[in-house]
Structures are given as C-alpha cells and as structure tokens.
Design a binder for these strands. Sequence first.
DNA 1: AGTTCAAGTGGACCACTGATCCGAATATAT
DNA 2: ATATATTCGGATCAGTGGTCCACTTGAACT
Lengths: 195, 195
Amino acid sequence: MRADAKKNRDHLLAVAGSAVAERGADVSLRDIARRAEVGLATLLRHFPTREALLDALLRTSFDELTARAGAFEESEPPADALVTWVRECVAWTTEYRGVTVLMAAAIEDPESALHASCVTLRAAGARLLTRAQDAGAARRDLDGDDLFALIAMLAWLGDQPALAPRAPRLFDVVAGALLTGAETAPAAVREGRRD
Amino acid sequence: MRADAKKNRDHLLAVAGSAVAERGADVSLRDIARRAEVGLATLLRHFPTREALLDALLRTSFDELTARAGAFEESEPPADALVTWVRECVAWTTEYRGVTVLMAAAIEDPESALHASCVTLRAAGARLLTRAQDAGAARRDLDGDDLFALIAMLAWLGDQPALAPRAPRLFDVVAGALLTGAETAPAAVREGRRD
DNA sequence: AGTTCAAGTGGACCACTGATCCGAATATAT
DNA sequence: ATATATTCGGATCAGTGGTCCACTTGAACT
C-alpha cells in the first residue's frame, strides 16, 4: 500500500471512530468523509461498505471480547464467567449505538464484512455456555445461537433511549433465567407454547 | 371531509396496509403513493409523517390488543392472562416488521403519532402485571415500563430474520423468569450488578 | 535527476429517500 | 351556472449510499 493511502486510511479510521461514537453506527458516510477532509469516493474505496468500515473499526474490540472470554474460562467459576462476559458484551455495544442490528444481520450473512467477527464472538460465547452447562450452572436447553440472540436482544434494549433505563433490571431477569436451570417452565408459559 | 378525499384516504390506508405487511414498516412512502396511483404530496397531507400513517393503520390492532387484555383479566388466571397477552403482543408485531423500533421511540416522545397507542398498551400490560403480582404469580420487582421493554425486546428479536428462529425459546426463558418470582438473582448475577 | 506508470484521489453524477410549494383541477354549496 | 374552498400532484429541495472517470501523485527504475 502506498504511503499516502495508508495515511488516509488511518486518518479515516480515526475520524470514523469518533463519528460513530458520537452519532451512532448510522452516521452519514459523507459526513465522515467531510470531517476527514476527503472525498466520499476515497472513503468508499478504502471501506467499500459501512460494514467494512465498522469491521475495521471494531475489530480490536471484538478481539478483546473473545480474549476476555478465554481468560474468564480459566480464571472464573463457570457461572460467573458466563454472566460477566455477557454483561461485558452488552455493555460494550452501548459505546457504539446501532451496531447491534448490524451484527444481528451479519451473523447469518456470509457476505457481510462483519460476519467473521460475529461468528467468532458467538463461538466464544458458546464455549462459556457449554462450560457452565457441564458444571450444572446453566440451563441445558440453550445453545450458542440462543446466547447470541439473547445478548443481541439485551444490547438492542440499551440502544433504545426510551428503554435503556430498564436494561439493567431486565439483564438481571434474563441472566437469572439463564442460570437457574429451570428448564421446566411454569405452567402458564408451557401452556401456550407453540413449538 | 370531502367525499373524494375520504375515498383517497381509505384507498391509501388499504394500499399502505399491504405494502407495510410485505415490505415492513420502513417502506418507501413514495412506493405506497405510487401503488395507490396518487401523488406523494397527497399521501403526506393525509398522513403527515410515517408515524401518523402507521398509527391510522395499526390503531384497530392496538385497540384489539388492549381489549384482549381486559378480557383476559376477567376470564383467565393471573399468570396465564399475563403470559398469553404478552405472547399475543409479540406475535402481533411479527405481522408488521419494523414497527417495534418505532414504538420503542414513540413511548417516550409525546410528539409521535404513535405515542398515545403505546401508552395505552403499556397501561393495559401494567394492569395485567400488577394483577399477577398481587396473586403472587409474578415477580414484584418489575413494573409496566419493564414489561413494555420486555415485550419490545422479544418483538425486536422476531423482527430480525437471523435471530427470529430463537425467539420462541427465548420467549419461554424470559416469560418463565417473569413468573417464577425469583426476585433473588443467583449469586453470579447479583455480583456484577451495577444499580 | 528525470521518466514512467500504476495507485490513489475527489468532483460530478445517479437513483433514491422524506418533505415542501404552489398552480391547476374539482367537488360542493349557492 | 357560478363561486369558492378543498384537494391534488408535478416540480423541486436537501439529504442518503454508490459509481465513474479525468486528473494528480508516489515511488520505482534507469
């Protein structure tokens, strides 16, 4: 890569970082280009889609999260490891408003630039989950996909300004349900189940 | 209202109904106008914002849901009434993709045309919740706002194509947690709580 | 140092979005 | 039949993501 190109790329990433942090993941790409004093075409060549830009931007955070999962796996009791990691995932997304819905779309779209990161994250969560299940600390009727959806759901809650105040409480409710191992739902729930 | 205006309005509502049903709540308004063989300006005068259009479109569904809540309150045991109603709310939103995020924004924005409907819905849920709590069937550390957020969260899950398959299972998990009355969360959850 | 040419750039453009304006068309009341 | 208040919709605007291509520029090789 030519030196000027690299300079532009790095500068764009830095500018995009603050833009996303303060405006959310759906900032206008033109805005980012303007702030970086660069043409829109330049931004789009370095990062052909919004997903590609976000992937480059969030990759280190992703790696940190999966690394944390590995660390917890060795240092924490199964239940704590799982719950704390989920909490960190949810907390992390609050720094980047709007990224949750993109990740939810990317997990099943191999074309998305965010796909790989999402899959890795899901795998890290799945390991923590099965570990907790093997220890008898988590209910066994959930798998990695369920955990991913659960995290996404709680993260989305924190993304909505009107609902965010309720997010911590609902986190506790959901995390508690994840752990109690109450695989037999109360009658009222079982009754109307349609699976 | 003039006769031709009413005819246009009704026609627009009908067209918008099918358009939203098949394309989701973020259809292009121009598309709706085109399908109705009407100028965009006409659509926008009848319904000045997308929210206004959706409100007119969903009002009857809203009313039905609140009526159902009232009916359940008198005919069903508290726990069943609550869970079944929540299930119906979540199921309803799957018919109108994308409406959940608009409702989440509207519940705290008195300017939104959807505000009133959301508030009514929340009140209906709150009644069912306190009834279940008084019967000792639901945990007492949640209120109407929490329930609204909980419903929105599950509804959003069903809106995401990649996560929707996990929605029924997570519904059971969350609904179970709502009922068990396990207000004392497991140690692993309590530990990291930051409230 | 000068030449060459691939790599990088960004202004102009496209189709699209929601929104607004205003002259033309029209339904209703007289 | 006329008058008028209402309704209509094409033209237009600023915004979006995205593509194209004439131009500039970095760096490698003589």
